[in-house]
Structures are given as C-alpha cells and as structure tokens.
Design a protein around this nucleic acid. Structure first.
Lengths: 291, 291
DNA sequence: TGGGAGCACTTGTCATGACAAGTAGCCTCG
DNA sequence: CGAGGCTACTTGTCATGACAAGTGCTCCCA
C-alpha cells in the first residue's frame, strides 16, 4: 500500500550534500515521493524545533534556499508560506523571514484522541470502561448525529486516567454503523485507542467541532472523578465526522479543571492553534513556579 | 495616507465584463492597488458567502478562472490555496474544488473584544465598571506580564452584560504604560470599547493566548452574575500583547456557562477556527429546538 | 451486459524569467 | 555631523511553459 521509501544522505544542518560543507554527520530522511516544497518545509521546521534556528533568528534568504536545495523560487516560497501560515515565521517584504516561535502546532488527532494526547505529553493514559450498550438515541444525541430519535446508537462511557489519576469522564455515542465495530472480539476498550482502532477499520474522522462550557459535578461524576458533588467541571461536547460532514460520534466529556485546560493561541496574522494542556498538580510543581 | 482607490465595473457574478455575459447589474469594488490573487480570493469568498456558490457546489476550474480574470495560473492558485487554508473549499487532484462551508471565519478581534463580538451577533453589549485602580502587581499577574512582583499595574474590573443580562466578570490587568491611558479624561470605561480606544492610541494587540477551565463562583462572582454561590463558571484567562511577544494585558474572565460557550472547529486539512458563541436562554429558544 | 482500456480534463508540482516594492547600509553633500 | 539620496539586496507578484498524477467518462470488446 505504501510506496517504498527511498533514502538519501543529508548533512547535520539538514542540507543536501554540498562541497562547501566542512564537517557533517549522517541522518536518514524520507526523501523521494514527497514533494520538494514539503521536504524544504519539514527541514526548516526541524531546524526550528531543534533550536538550530532560535527564536528571533533570520532564516536563509530565498535565493540561498534555492541554491542549497537546487530548486527554483516556487517550491521555496511554497515552503515558507506554509511555515508562515503555521505562525512559525514572520517577516515581510524587504526583510528576511524571522523565526517567531518554536512551538510546533498540535496536529488534528491530538485534540481528538485522549490516548494520543497523553502519549505526546509523555504521560501514561489509562481508562476504565463503565458501560457499552446499544440503545435507542435520546433527543439531544439524535439532533447532534442527524438521525431520528429512537434510532439505534452505541453508547460508551469511560473514565479516563492520567498517570493513574481520574481525569475525565467520556460519554460517547456512535452511530450504529460505526459503533457496531466496538463489539468486535478484536477490540478491547480498556487497552487500545478507539480512534486508532476505528481508523484501521476505514472510519475516517476528519472534521470535529468542540463546544466548551462548565457544569457542576452530579453524584456520578463526583464519585468517579473523586471531587465533591457540585464541583465545577470543564465540559467539552464534541461532534466528529467524515470530511463530507456526516457525523459519526457525539461525546460529552467532563474534565477535572485542576488537571486539564484548553488553550487557544491567536494572532492577527497567523491561523489560530488549539491545544489541550495538562496542568501539574500543586504537589508536582512545588518550588517549580515559572519565573 | 491611503492610496486613492480606483474602481471598475464587474457583473453581478463578480466577474469582469465579458461579451458572453447576457445580463448584469453594477456594483463597485475596490480594484487596483490590491494584488490580483487577493481580488480573486475576495470575489470567490463573496460569492460563497452570498450563496451564489452553495455548499457542495463545484468552483470554476482553474483554467476557467484564468480566462475570466485574464490571469495566469499563479494568482488563481494562490487565491484557491488561501480559501483552502480557511477551510472554505475542499477538493484535490483530479477533481474541481468544492465549497465545503459558507461560514466565514471569525477575525482575531472578535475573540478579544467583548463589545465587538456582541455587535457581530446583533446583540447590545453593556458594562458596569466596578473598579479601576493603580496598584502593585500580585505574583500571578507579574508572572503573566513578565514584570516583577510589586511593579505598578492598572487593574480594571468590569461586569459585562448582554442585552442587559449579567454575562461575564472581567478582571483585567494592564502594564502601567498601557493602563495609564485609561485614566485619560477622554476615556469612559462604561461606554466605549477598550480595545478600540487603545488601538487609536497606537497600542497594537496582535497576539493572544487564551486558557480555559472551570471554577466555582465565589461570593462576589455569585452576587454580580446572579448565580448561586459555588455555581460552575467558565473561566478564560487571557494574555495579550504585541506582535513581538511583549505582554500588555492579563485578564481573568468568568462567564455564565448558560449564556456563553466557546467553540473550536477542527479539520484534518484546514486550520482550526475558534469562536465565542452565545447560548439563547431556555425561555428564548422555547419551541425553537433545532431539528 | 459488464469490465477494462483509453482519453479528456482536472489539479499538483516545478523551472524560468521579469518587474514592483520595501529595507538597510553606504556615501556624498550641505 | 546630520540629512538625504543612491544602491544592493530582499521579498511580493505575475506570466509562461512543462510534465506528473488523479478522476470521470466513453467506448470498445469479450
């Protein structure tokens, strides 16, 4: 299915081999089959993330990049424009592009999958499945999934843990055609990531809409999340579906606000980026208050 | 200061005059001095927003756009790529671009300014200034503004109303150089928008970071927002500053979650868009539950 | 009638060349 | 010594041409 990758050598600066490079070490990168402008962009991203190009530093000029990659201005400008759209670089007419931030934007999946997010943080996700059932859709769920009230759906309720601590209650409803897959013997809701599992089965979740508000913990929430009844919880209601807009799942997730926050970064020029953030407990960040 | 705009006629379809157009009405658009690819993008955006190109419809092919605008593929592709980045259109190799949604992304300011947001919703914002004071910075604020604890700052506490109903408590702290402007006789905190006022004075707020969580209403919050003590509130902590990253303001805003929510729309391909959403009260949307 | 080859058309990628517009540094002149 | 102009260099915009890769359709043949 995947094209066989071919490889080539590049220097430790991420540049193709050129006579003027004095010393170099070897690393291997995916090469052909990926368009040139993407290889250029990936390389610049990597150099920014690694700190070779610190914040405030000027990138090589377009003509220099053209020489280094033996490319014309087209692909080089395409790469720079991609970085600009991600907010990584600034600059403008007459002055060379400048590194604005080294933060790499979180990919789409990170906001969707709790497991994937936890792993990207270097923490260990856990989960306890409380209920999985096939039942008729309630009104609110039917509206969100664009089906009729009473149509069969699959409900899944899970308590999600972070490093063993209760963090979130997830009440997800899948349309029947997708939820059916969760009853497969191959699926173990307590060990694997649902989204990874569904992706393997050809379910493409590619658009999502998240609505945030706050609710008070009801008795069930309170005992599972180990907070007092009535404590404020951060609620995310999520509807996700295919690229064509067909909804596949609706979820009501309630977070302990002392463990998880959501962050939006916003600039006049660049596109906004969103991220789920983990908040260290007071015991953890004792004496480590940021300067 | 501004270049004198020149104008030209285009048909009701937004196309330049061509002999093959049978009927047309006149409208005036800004023309020269704006690059071609932006004029093309603006025109397509307008046609999508007006419904001339409904969701699901295919856009003209690149070669057609080239003919219509007497342009080469460069600017046309630049325009399409801009729309694609905004999530307005989809499509790919071999198939013509397709309108994905007609929703125009909210500009940067809408998430920053309560007044601006309310107006864009067609609702009337209100505000009651509870406190404005110059005092030494607390620890948390000093950290956020990158100044030393005890440095002078300007605190502003306002109750914000939507259609006369209490909606949000805003506790904003400005660095002294910016906050000083709020004591000017020309500024009336109860009538004008702070951000519009500051922008006039040359304060450029162009990057912001918003962190969302939930808190319980303390006695002050409760009485001002007219909710029970301990009720869950949606909290947004915001840090905003100049393009170079210098922070100007830090704010702790607490919303009634039954009035305001925040929404993130997220897709695998396009950049995320964020928006503040107004939630009609149960009395308002009685019998108008969405199908 | 069904399936596959072929074809027309689409978008994706890249090269080359040209000019406009903005920046920063140098240098001259008052 | 300061102000202004000049120049080299940068990025922004656009034209033209070419080929690769994917889609959808027709048409032919088994």
């Amino acid at each position: 299915m995947f094209p066989r990758d071919s490889f080539h050598l590049i220097t430790k600066d991420g540049l193709p081999l050129l006579p003027l490079v004095p010393t170099w070490t070897v690393c291997i990168v995916k090469s052909v089959d990926e368009p040139l402008y993407q290889r250029i962009a990936d390389d610049l991203r990597r150099r920014i993330a690694r700190g070779d190009l610190p914040v405030g530093a000027a990138l090589p000029s377009e003509s220099q990049l053209c020489e280094q990659w033996a490319a014309s201005r087209g692909p080089v400008r395409q790469a720079l424009s991609a970085l600009r759209a991600e907010g990584l670089i600034g600059g403008g007419r007459g002055r060379p592009p400048v590194v604005r931030t080294s933060r790499v934007p979180q990919p789409f999946e990170t906001l969707l999958s709790f497991s994937r997010w936890a792993h990207s943080l270097g923490r260990t996700p856990g989960q306890r499945t409380l209920e999985i059932a096939r039942r008729p859709a309630r009104q609110e769920v039917a509206d969100a999934l664009a089906i009729d009230e009473g149509d069969p759906v699959v409900d899944l309720v899970r308590l999600r843990l972070l490093d063993g601590r209760p963090t979130m209650i997830e009440r997800t409803t899948f349309v029947e055609s997708v939820g059916r897959l969760l009853f497969d013997v191959a699926f173990d809701p307590d060990s694997s990531s649902i989204y990874a599992y569904l992706a393997e089965r050809g379910v493409d979740l590619s658009v999502a809409r998240h609505v945030f508000d706050a609710v008070a913990a009801d008795p069930t929430d309170a005992s599972l999340l180990e907070v007092p009844e009535g404590a404020p919880l951060l609620r995310e209601r999520r509807r996700a579906g295919s690229a064509s807009g067909e909804p596949y799942e609706y979820s009501d997730d309630r977070y302990r606000p002392d463990v998880v926050t959501f962050t939006i970064e916003n600039a006049e020029q660049a596109h906004p980026s969103v991220a789920r953030a983990w908040r260290p407990t007071p015991a953890d960040n004792n004496q480590t208050h940021p300067k």
